Computed example of a mutant assay.
Amino acid sequence: MLTLEGLHHVALICSDYDRSRAFYVDLLGLRVVAETYRAARQSWKLDLELPDGARVELFTFPGAPARPSRPEALGLRHLAFRVADVTAAKQWLEAQGVAVEEIRIDALTGKRFTFFADPDELPLELYER
C-alpha cells in the first residue's frame, strides 16, 4: 500500500524571476533553501520553504506560455497557505499594496478564506487554520 506522508513541494513557473523572488521571499516571507541558475536551460530554480517544511519551487523557462485563464484552466487551480488569522493576513497584504478578495466562509468546513494573486496572476489562497 502507498502511504503518503505529506506535501513536499509545489513547483511554479514564473515570467519574471526577480519580481517573483521578491514576492515570495520579501513579501510572503518564505525562506530561501537554494538558488540555482541552470545555464544549459537558461533557467533559474529557487527552492523556498514554509515554516512547516513544505516547499515552493520557482522556475523560469524562456518562452513559457501564459496561463490560459484564472482559475478554471486544467491543472493547478490555486495554491493555499494556512494562516492563523485570515483578517490580519488580508490587512497586512493590503497594506503592502496587494489586492485581496473579500473573506468568505467555506460552506463545507466553516473556515474563513480569501484569495489574492502572485505576480503572474496565479491564484493564491489564505485559509484559516
Rank of each mutant, 00 (worst) to 15 (best):
P62Y: 02
E128R: 05
W44N: 15
A107K: 00
I105W: 00
F115W: 02
K90V: 14
A39L: 13
H8S: 09
Y17F: 15
A80R: 07
T3D: 15
A22V: 06
R67M: 05
E121Q: 07
L58H: 13
R41I: 04
Y24W: 10
E5W: 14
D106Y: 03
L108W: 01
P119C: 02
L27H: 09
G6N: 05
I103C: 01
E49A: 15
L122W: 12
E125C: 02
V100M: 02
S69V: 03
P123W: 03
Y37I: 14
L74W: 14
Y17R: 12
E102V: 01
A89Q: 06
G29R: 13
Y37R: 12
Y17I: 11
R77W: 12
V10N: 06
T109W: 00
F115L: 03
D120F: 04
R41M: 13
F59M: 09
E121K: 06
V10L: 00
I105R: 01
R31Y: 14
L79Q: 05
V25Q: 10
S69H: 03
A22Q: 11
G53P: 12
D52I: 11
D47T: 10
A64G: 11
L48E: 12
L74V: 11
E128F: 08
Y17D: 12
T60K: 03
L122R: 09
L76D: 11
A64M: 04
P119F: 03
G6C: 12
E35P: 11
Y127N: 07
T87M: 11
D26R: 10
P71L: 08
E72M: 14
L124A: 01
V98S: 00
R104S: 11
V25M: 04
F59N: 09
E121W: 05
Y127K: 06
L28K: 02
L50T: 10
H9G: 05
H78E: 03
L93I: 01
F59Y: 13
F113K: 10
R21M: 02
G6D: 01
V56S: 05
V98P: 04
A117G: 02
L58W: 10
T36G: 08
V98G: 05
F81K: 07
G63I: 09
A95V: 09
A95K: 07
L12C: 08
P62L: 08
A66P: 09
E5C: 12
E101D: 03
S20C: 10
T3C: 11
E125M: 02
Q91T: 15
G6L: 06
A88G: 13
A22C: 10
Q96K: 13
R67E: 11
L28C: 02
Y127T: 10
L76P: 04
H8E: 11
L30S: 14
R82G: 10
Q42S: 15
A64S: 09
V10C: 03
R67V: 01
A40K: 11
R77K: 12
E128M: 06
A73I: 06
L58V: 08
V98D: 00
T114R: 01
